[in-house]
Write a protein that binds this DNA or RNA. Structure first.
Lengths: 151, 151
DNA sequence: TGTATCGTTCAGAAGGTTTTGAATGTTAGG
DNA sequence: CCTAACATTCAAAACCTTCTGAACGATACA
């Protein structure tokens, strides 16, 4: 089944198109389509033509952002598997929203804290927008999870 | 007012923290806080300590993603100004959502198109999630725009 | 038309990131 | 204890991107 290889490859291309490492996307693509869902580092390296080092680095990154987890393997070592909410993580950038929110508030403070100043308007709207998103995106995600029965 | 310079600098740091070019963030930061809102390339280069080349490249990028527009200047040349919905653009990545949606559908097709297969479940949920987001994020943005009176 | 300012393009320099592969450590089973 | 497969780390190589600065082109005003 070399089509599966090409699928993972394609996910790599798309994700690298939005600024992520290619190996990251390939690994994600593989974990999306592989059977069984659990795969060892060696299997991933073989099926994707990546070095062990790249797999190690890539999987650590995927683990760190909470898209993948390690479980003890049947024999020796571990295997990796995608978490059910892996994709949700890609959209829930609350941390980023809040960082920008804080940045905008800084700017307003710099202008004397008077939000009614015309000059402060761009900053105020921006601040409010990111606050709005930080509140609403998680709600949206919850709604999807409930609808999909993912609890 | 060197604090304004530092503000732009700080926006640059935060945005480069999420993978964007530093110049991009600095320019955005400057356009958020500057007075008047319209600024020429030369002004931007001077106030940010960037080369003309960097400003040219950065502004072209900001224009291309629709965060900034060029308007004819009073004297010669043009000036740039932030668009009211500049920040909205940063969140409305519908194109990306739809690209991933298509990718997931590809994967399902590869498995024979049978969505009920356990093996296809990760792909199906992913596909549906991105479809959901592509539909809902714009609604969210509209809601904010209405609430804020931005039409 | 001449001049001065401004803007863009482009090639090279600088810097950073990813990928690799070898060395090292680890675990299971014989 | 020994072996074999596996996994991780790390330094070097390859690669890519950004930034700069000089050269070129354009525009407005005198």
């Amino acid at each position: 089944m070399d089509e599966e290889r090409r699928f993972a490859e394609e996910v790599g291309v798309v994700l690298s198109g939005i600024g992520l490492p290619a190996a990251f996307g390939k690994l994600m693509g593989r974990l999306l389509i592989c059977d069984p869902p659990q795969q060892s580092s060696a299997q991933l390296a073989r099926s994707l033509g990546l070095s062990k080092g790249s797999v190690s680095t890539g999987m650590r990154a995927l683990e760190q952002v909470g898209m993948v987890r390690r479980v003890p393997g049947a024999g020796r070592g571990h295997v990796y598997e995608m978490l059910p909410d892996a994709l949700v993580r890609t959209v829930d950038a609350r941390r980023v929203y809040l960082a920008i929110h804080a940045l905008m508030q800084n700017g307003i403070d710099l202008l004397g804290g008077d939000e009614s100043l015309p000059r402060a308007q761009r900053l105020r709207v921006s601040r409010d927008f990111y606050a709005f998103m930080a509140e609403r995106i998680p709600q949206l995600i919850d709604e999807f999870a409930r609808r999909e029965g993912l609890t």
